[in-house]
Simulated assay, not measured.
Amino acid sequence: MNLKVLILAISTICVGLVELIVGGILPQIAQDLNISIGTAGQLITVFALIYAFSGPVLLALTAKMERKRLYMLSLFVFFIANVMAYVSPSFTMLMAARILTAMSTALIIVLSLTITAKVVEPAHRAKALGFIYMGISSSLVLGVPLGIMISEAFGWRVLFLGIGVLSIGSMALIYFFLDRIEPDQLTPLREQIKALANPKIAGAHLACLFMLAGHYTVYAYFTPFLESELGLSPYWISIFYFLFGLSAVGGGAFGGALADALGSRKSIIMIITSFMLVLFVLPFTTFYMFLFMAVMVIWGALSWSLAPPLQNYLIQVDPDTSDIQQSFNNSALQLGISLGSAIGGLVLEQGGSVSSTAWVGGGVVVISLVCAMYSLTRPALSARWGK
Rank of each mutant, 00 (worst) to 15 (best):
L306K: 01
P122E: 10
P27L: 05
V57E: 01
I21E: 07
Q311W: 05
L333P: 02
L243A: 13
T223F: 09
D260T: 04
A128T: 02
F280T: 05
L146D: 00
M211G: 01
R190W: 06
V110K: 01
I115H: 05
L17F: 13
L146E: 00
A259G: 08
L3A: 15
S74K: 04
N198H: 07
A197L: 12
L178N: 04
I315A: 09
G135P: 07
L17K: 04
S233Y: 10
L73F: 15
A102Q: 09
L166I: 09
S264Q: 15
N82C: 04
M93V: 15
Q31E: 06
G263Q: 06
S368R: 02
V249I: 14
Q316V: 03
L94Q: 03
A106P: 09
I272D: 00
L277Q: 02
P309F: 14
M84P: 07
G386F: 03
H124G: 09
S353L: 15
S375H: 01
L73V: 12
A96N: 10
M276Y: 02
M293S: 10
D318H: 14
A126Y: 04
L111W: 08
S137R: 04
M211K: 02
A96V: 07
K194L: 12
S305P: 00
G23P: 15
I13T: 09
A102M: 13
F240I: 07
V317C: 13
C371M: 14
V87Y: 10
I115V: 14
L212M: 12
M211A: 13
N329I: 06
W236E: 11
Q192K: 14
A372M: 05
S138H: 07
